[in-house]
Design a protein around this nucleic acid. Structure first.
Lengths: 198, 198
DNA sequence: CCTAAAATCAAACCTCAATTTGATTAAATT
DNA sequence: AATTTAATCAAATTGAGGTTTGATTTTAGG
């Protein structure tokens, strides 16, 4: 029985990135442990040294992906900024996060539904996802209250914004016409224009 | 061997709606023929009298779902309307279509990727999906050209709009605070505000 | 060099779900 | 009523893929 050519050992992050990438391309159920292992030069069984199983991979990819964006958003929220500036920074942080790690972004968009059927992961994920949405709602409400923004239906506006941002992970290509920062700036412009008082 | 209580025979549309609903809840790969059949009071094997198999179900759900929206959009595009009015009508047509058939809408959003891996369906689907996007681009470009809209990056703006609309199928509930028509009106307001010249 | 822990492999195991098959029932037509 | 056709069922088949297992290799420390 031939042995492997002794490749470097693979770490947690490598596994998560490979898993995210396969989840992005095939979806959770369409992804196979064999394909994830292939990207790492491993066999399917070897993955079980790094993670308990396929579900654990999904949970880790989504949780850690969400952590990145939530962390950046929290930092911005704690600064004393005007609603317009704060919203712009939040949009840019989120959009750039997505373009920096499209696979994780796409997995979050497309596989949250799957994660919600894993009882052990469900509650904490919902809580953090909701807190994410609440960040946007708060800043928009604050802007309306102080007259910087026109009055809009805040829940609907927020969903529109989140939908547009989420969708970026579907169409973004690293070698496309615009880079992440440019897309982020355009997105921020759209939302600030839409909120500009008449 | 006991027989079935002789329910009414099930038609093509019933099957497609059941399939769309299960695709929405589980995703294509997570959906089982048994669950689709269950919704119809049938057994898995019986589905094969109506459709060739699971892939054929996906193709039909997505194609026919797309047809509905494309049809409504084409009708609007052929009328002689100002860009603002036309865009409003297009947005309302699309959003109302989604809220009228959330399952098909969600299946289109989440399972297009899967369909694109079915060679027999791929090309025609891509063509029609692109023509859909082109409709929005054209009307926005027309509005910018005649000065009714401010200058935006049309591809980005269009993607933002489509992302927001697609995302509706994720969060919309028939018994939510707002109905389809109200959501549609808010969405149209958002885009028209964002395009309003300074 | 020796040894133990970590990482890996090949192969077996086992379940699940798509599909096939060969009856059986129901409905429509004659 | 007889016959054909459309729908359906239960059960068998089959393949794919997640997981387990028991070796084997590699690496780090002594």
């Amino acid at each position: 029985m031939p042995r492997k050519p002794a490749s470097q050992t693979v770490n947690r992050k490598d596994v998560l990135m490979a898993a995210a990438s396969v989840f992005q391309q095939r979806g959770y159920h369409g992804a196979t442990m064999a394909e994830i292992a292939d990207r790492l030069g491993l066999t399917a069984g070897s993955l079980y040294h790094h993670f308990q199983g396929k579900e654990a991979l999904l949970v880790a990819v989504l949780n850690e992906g969400l952590d990145v964006v939530l962390g950046r958003l929290d930092t911005i929220m704690q600064q004393p900024l005007s609603p317009a500036i704060m919203l712009r920074q939040m949009v840019e942080a989120q959009v750039i996060s997505v373009t920096e790690n499209v696979a994780a972004g796409a997995a979050i968009v497309f596989e949250s539904r799957t994660l919600l059927e894993i009882p052990a992961a469900r509650d904490s994920y919902i809580r953090r996802r909701d807190s994410f949405e609440r960040c946007y709602r708060q800043v928009i409400e604050r802007g309306i209250a102080c007259g910087d923004f026109r009055a809009v239906d805040v829940p609907i506006f927020t969903k529109a914004l989140l939908g547009a941002h989420n969708w970026i992970s579907v169409w973004y290509h690293p070698d496309g016409r615009l880079g992440g920062a440019e897309i982020a700036a355009h997105m921020a412009d759209i939302w600030l224009s839409a909120l500009r008082p008449t």
